[in-house]
Design a protein around this nucleic acid. Structure first.
Length: 863
DNA sequence: GTAGCCTTGATC
DNA sequence: GATCAAGGCTAC
């Protein structure tokens, strides 16, 4: 590694954390020298708890000055009057940062780098929609034509790291100069790139073969994702598996088609396929490499600049994606999410449902008022091409002809519509504006800080608000072509919303109102139907994979199913008009991204079923030799591993908190790796969730990374605790599995489970509802030691908004418990302490078999 | 930077 | 060949 020495030197000279500050790079450096070096890991873990001063974790960046304000019912309510200039810091158990630990960092880095390189080399033919560096275009991956290959990958990584280090701010430098920080840093840059909805995966033109040059043009923070990559079909294409197989098991985990572990983002988009989330699927059922930024909102509120840290986060469309169905046989139906999500490639549903003319809808519903459908989905390539026009699409929504639509004003500026551009009918100028903004990575900021009027006469005045409106009205970032290919029909999966501003002039007020309702009902029904279809498909698939029938049906998890997601979405919309702060509504609307859909659960848990059912049933859908070898390896390892160790792993609260766990009796050691992988997926889900958060999107990429690293565990555990509110004395995992305190005692997890139960008790006592829950998650996410942040003020402001939103909500909805807001905040320190325990436990328990994945990196980074 | 017009090319 | 939604060009 050419830059290793310099990195090391920088690391040694970098600030080392200071007191009481969670210093990411330092933490990373404290990790053990080698993933297989259990003693080192133990040491760091043990020492970690020895000196609490080291790991003071910022509970909140804000200073909460309480004042009393009158509530509507006359009560005086303590409220946070001032969030600024203070930091409530709760000392947590931490560990010292010793020189000995640092001495191992280079070795660990080398190990990690080797792992990464091996993984990439192994993944050359695997799915890499997004790489760690995210810079590799398809030609680069192909290697042959562009002279790529492992060496180039390594070189690429080096270049990127070099840039990262050289461009870091002092604070950032601390995080980038630590060698062991690099992998996670790089990954998280990708994550953050995802978070930023970066519009481009490659420096364009991607079709060229100037790999290295392009890589240099596209730093890690800008182009983390390779959108053009289209993974091969059907194979076990998980680089992680590849790595694990090589380094650990020597066989294949019976995981489903798996995302690249060196691509958190990929995981997000495969296991959390857009098709499986209402909002995302709104745009794309599943189009590999296209739908990264489908739910993006603008970062246009950022300062205006042409940035590699694109605010637009255009997924710059990679064209000609293969049918999703071929990728994930079961993913296409996307149970009940967003309508457009399913069946891409299998034609299960189409316009007839989501895109039907309102007259048809009316006839089906029998209500004349229900003659419109606001949400128009185009979920096939052809349909995306032909909105409202002749051909495959329905003639029109609500019986509105294409000509009518074109004659209506542009929903963005009111100018004359020239056609269907980037997902909506818009004028030529807005089309061009959107294209320029995305392609040129403009990052506009509204000087007024608010939504400016966008009209023909004013549209030039505030590009930030204009762009925001473009997105708001439904323009799709993914419609911007990554490779700038001209001509042809677009293949991005477009499901767009016909704005009210367009519907209204064309429909009577009643119709316009009914349109939304009908669309909602139609979507709901449709998604419900899809949900069942998908469940059936998944069940069948799982039976096939497991080689037996029965008892493989998916868990009826109301909190995880697609139908419930839709319900949640509808619920959020219904409540929008109520007193729920807008911010909370927006947060709630992306909450579904946090949750697993049935499809995701089926994919992720399928290996669990396989594990639990023993080697004979652990084969994947294919009866390949690899699977057989893997089974043998499983059985072999089963005999080698202590049962107790397995049990402890299986019930690890951190894994449990990921909402995914297993307490199967026949688990084998590979299950641990699988669970870690599963936890990875959960982390990827968090990334997906984060990126759609209204507040988080406006934070710089480095700060996003920092915040994520700082809060991932808290988010997981908090989610788990909230999930367990209705089961006193038990911590609820996925699929209805639970851990009681007594069970935890047998596993040595008593302390952590006890704390979780305690926290859950508080949540129950406080009757924390879902809005409070999601708000608290955001608050937890947005808290970090200010010294780590580049734009601490901005982060603090974002947190303030979340706090204010939560406060306003609790005041409005629970006026009789005015202290609720404060009490909710007081749970955060508990949460953080619990997390510290969970991390330590997981680190200890996985040190022997710890494989290289995001979870392990995160853990290493903190221990 | 904007926006109108042109070219391109996949799809029907 | 028609359509049309992409990107490109260029005058402003």
């Amino acid at each position: 590694m050419p830059n290793m020495s310099s990195i090391k030197a920088e690391q040694q000279s970098a600030p080392m954390g200071g007191t009481g500050s969670y210093q990411l790079p330092v933490n990373m450096c404290t990790s053990s020298s080698n993933s297989s070096n259990s003693s080192a890991m133990t040491m760091t873990t043990t020492t970690g708890s020895a000196t609490p001063s080291r790991h003071n974790v910022s509970v909140t960046n804000i200073k909460c000055e309480l004042e009393e304000l009158p509530t509507p019912n006359g009560n005086l309510v303590p409220v946070i009057a001032n969030y600024n200039h203070g930091s409530l810091r709760i000392p947590l158990s931490g560990q010292p940062h010793t020189a000995e630990e640092e001495s191992d960092s280079e070795a660990e880095l080398t190990n990690i780098e080797n792992l990464k390189v091996r993984r990439r080399a192994a993944d050359k033919n695997g799915p890499r929609p997004m790489s760690w560096e995210g810079e590799l275009s398809e030609p680069e991956e192909n290697g042959g034509s562009c002279g790529g290959g492992g060496a180039e990958l390594m070189e690429t990584e080096t270049v990127i790291k070099s840039e990262v280090c050289s461009t870091s701010t002092p604070i950032q430098a601390a995080s980038t100069t630590c060698p062991t920080m690099q992998p996670i840093k790089t990954e998280l840059e990708n994550i953050a790139g995802e978070l930023q909805h970066h519009p481009r995966s490659n420096a364009y033109p991607v079709s060229s073969c100037n790999g290295p040059a392009k890589l240099k043009l596209a730093p890690t923070q800008s182009d983390p994702i390779n959108l053009k990559y289209e993974p091969p079909l059907g194979d076990n294409n998980s680089p992680l598996l590849t790595t694990r197989n090589k380094s650990n098991s020597g066989g294949h985990l019976p995981l489903p088609a798996n995302p690249s572990p060196d691509s958190a983002i990929h995981s997000v988009y495969t296991h959390s396929s857009p098709s499986q989330s209402p909002l995302t699927s709104r745009h794309a059922p599943y189009t590999p490499s296209l739908s990264r930024n489908n739910s993006d909102a603008s970062h246009s509120s950022c300062y205006s600049y042409s940035s590699e840290f694109s605010p637009t986060h255009s997924p710059i469309q990679a064209r000609h994606a293969p049918p999703a169905g071929s990728m994930y046989p079961g993913s296409g139906s996307a149970a009940g999410n967003g309508g457009a999500g399913s069946s891409y490639g299998n034609g299960v549903h189409h316009h007839g449902m989501l895109y039907r003319p309102l007259k048809a809808e009316a006839s089906s519903t029998g209500g004349s008022s229900q003659e419109s459908a606001q949400n128009l989905s185009m979920d096939s390539a052809s349909s995306a091409m032909d909105p409202l026009g002749s051909g495959s699409l329905p003639a029109s929504p609500a019986g509105i002809s294409r000509q009518q639509l074109i004659n209506s004003p542009c929903p963005i500026c009111g100018d004359k519509i020239s056609g269907f551009h980037y997902g909506i009918f818009s004028c030529e100028s807005c089309k061009g504006f959107f294209k320029r903004t995305v392609q040129n990575r403009k990052n506009y900021v509204c000087v007024r800080g608010g939504p400016c009027q966008v009209s023909i006469s004013t549209r030039k005045k505030c590009p930030a608000c204009r762009f925001e409106k473009c997105l708001q009205k439904g323009m799709k970032l993914e419609a911007i072509r990554e490779d700038r290919t001209r001509g042809g029909r677009s293949t991005y999966q477009c499901s767009y919303t016909l704005p009210n501003s367009m519907l209204s002039p064309l429909l009577s007020p009643d119709q316009a109102v009914a349109a939304a309702a009908v669309a909602s009902v139609a979507n709901h029904q449709h998604q419900h139907q899809q949900h069942h279809q998908h469940q059936h498909q998944q069940q069948r698939l799982q039976q096939q994979m497991n080689g037996f029938s029965g008892s493989t049906s998916l868990p009826a998890s109301p909190s995880l199913g697609g139908a419930s997601i839709k319900t949640e979405e509808s619920e959020a919309k219904t409540l929008r008009a109520s007193s729920i702060p807008t911010l909370l509504q927006e947060i709630m609307e992306v909450e579904h991204l946090w949750q697993y859909t049935d499809a995701e659960l089926a994919r992720i848990n399928q290996p669990l079923s396989a594990f639990a059912s023993g080697g004979s049933s652990s084969s994947s859908s294919s009866s390949s030799a690899a699977s057989t070898a893997h089974q043998n390896h499983q059985q072999q390892q089963q005999q080698q591993q202590p049962h107790q160790h397995q049990q402890q792993q299986l019930t690890n609260p951190l894994l449990a908190s990921a909402g995914l766990s297993s307490n199967g009796e026949n688990a084998n050691p590979d299950l641990i790796a699988h669970l870690c992988n599963v936890a990875d997926h959960r982390l990827y889900k968090i990334v997906k969730w984060c990126k759609s958060l209204p507040l988080f999107k406006n934070i710089s990429i480095d700060d996003q990374i920092c915040l994520l690293i700082n809060s991932w565990c808290e988010l997981l555990l908090f989610s788990c605790c909230f999930r367990s509110i209705d089961t006193p004395g038990e911590i609820k995992m996925s699929q209805g599995r639970k851990i009681t305190l007594s069970q935890a005692k047998t596993n040595g997890l008593q302390t952590c489970i006890e704390r979780m139960l305690n926290l859950t008790d508080h949540l129950r006592r406080l009757r924390v509802d879902r809005y409070e829950y999601v708000a608290m998650k955001v608050i937890v996410l947005l808290q970090s030691d200010t010294s780590e942040l580049h734009e601490a003020v901005k982060v603090r402001e974002c947190q303030e908004k979340a706090l204010q939103g939560l406060q306003a909500y609790t005041l409005a909805h629970y006026p009789d418990t005015p202290s609720k807001f404060g009490e909710l905040l007081l749970r955060i320190p508990d949460l953080q302490r619990t997390c510290q325990l969970g991390k330590e436990m997981l680190t200890i328990k996985t040190r022997d078999g710890a494989d290289f994945n995001l979870l392990m990196e995160l853990l290493r980074g903190e221990h």
